[in-house]
Design a protein around this nucleic acid. Structure first.
Lengths: 231, 231
DNA sequence: AGCACCAAGTAAACATCGTCCACATACGCT
DNA sequence: AGCGTATGTGGACGATGTTTACTTGGTGCT
């Protein structure tokens, strides 16, 4: 994808992966790497962070790990499988960001206030992460991982994935009487759609130029709209 | 990306683009193609339809057009430029789908009813197209084309792009008194986010398995939610 | 202790893609 | 008629994912 290929000194032609990029040139001494799988995921995560899902390229990961390209195939079925692992890691980060926001809500006050704050926390945690880590966010939600699965790889400290954290907030809404049992059904999808849509329109859609501050302001309005519109 | 490469008979090794795929083997007789640019866009559009933005590959387009890969560079700056043209075409289709839905709303009845129907038409037209043509939809909204531009290539018969059609529906809401001037501001983004989010969660997100019928039902609830939540 | 097994890494190759440079062709204007 | 130039061609380069065959060396069994 680099438009310009200005003839990098290619004397190290078949030592391609020994000392290529300036990153991690640390030549390992043991034949075994010892922790290759994790090293590859870490490298992939960094690439995803910088450039989204399309940027996680297998050969580059092996290069950064200081092994030959094929070594990756001892730990992953192929590039897609590596990407899968990276996506799981990204999902965990999303969950962690939401949890952080959620933990700020203390149930001390009125339960309805608490419920509202919780919903807002989930929405804004989600959006905030999307703005802070666009690459990881886009990676997390590219290509389908089934949503209800409590795959521990996707979860953060509470053991819940982003979808389940949203469910939790909506449960609080219902329990506090802000949401009828009937309106509660499927509310996850309605709420999720709104904030996810805004995030993607901004990150990889036509709203690319919108300043983050405005995005967050819109996010607040969005959450309010959900609150009002759900019931 | 094809997992299996089962050794296609490669005797035509450097006649690569003359008779490759079974599609369009029509060997042209004139040296000039005559309509190459459009042929490439058409081919790209078909690829986008089948596999989304990542599936539109320059070399394959030239193959289907029966020309050498480099011929494309006489009409496009590169693959990205071709993709741009394809995306414009996709956007037009989206606009057309919305218009079709919008045209079903006759202003005969109560203007508030008309306004509501219009908003619903825009939302459901958008969602319906996304379900019917996932590849084109995903292509239309990948990578940023500035949203307000009335680029005629992006528009359908009314000369409005999807965003502008949404604006029109919201204007009707305001004119009919359903929306205050204050709430009207930025309402496009709120409304758009909801339905776009649902579409993407389903098309390339974790809601992949959701049956289209359920998606459309959720869409209806979403539009209602927007109606209620905006004011 | 010795040794054989096998998981993990390497080497070399192939196909595909995008893109650049030099060259060929024939359309259409003067 | 002739020529300029828009349009296509040929061949190459570097990148990527992936496969097949080979090497290495640590583990565990006897």
């Amino acid at each position: 994808m680099d438009a310009v290929h200005t003839n990098p000194p290619r004397d190290t032609l078949f030592l391609e992966y020994t000392m290529k990029k300036n990153v991690t040139p640390e030549k390992r001494k043991t034949f075994r790497h010892g922790d290759l799988r994790n090293a590859l995921v870490r490298a992939g995560l960094e690439m995803a962070r910088a450039g989204g899902p399309d940027a996680v390229v297998l050969r580059e990961a092996t290069r950064q790990a200081g092994v030959s390209p094929n070594a990756a195939y001892r730990h992953f079925a192929g590039q897609a499988d590596l990407l899968d692992a990276v996506r799981s890691a990204c999902l965990s980060r999303v969950a962690a960001a939401i949890e952080d926001e959620l933990k700020k809500c203390r149930p001390g006050s009125n339960p309805q206030v608490f419920a509202r704050k919780s919903l807002r926390a989930v929405g804004m945690g989600y959006l905030g992460f999307a703005m802070r880590e666009p690459g990881m966010f886009r990676t997390a939600f590219s290509v389908p991982p089934p949503v209800h699965s409590p795959d521990p790889a996707n979860t953060a400290s509470m053991g819940l994935n982003p979808f389940q954290l949203l469910s939790l907030a909506l449960d609080r809404m219902q329990e506090s009487g802000l949401l009828s049992k009937k309106d509660r059904k499927g509310a996850e999808y309605l709420a999720w759609s709104t904030v996810h849509g805004l995030a993607l329109l901004v990150l990889e859609g036509p709203l690319h130029a919108m300043p983050p501050q405005m995005v967050l302001a819109l996010g607040e309005r969005l959450v309010v709209m959900v609150e009002r519109g759900l019931s």
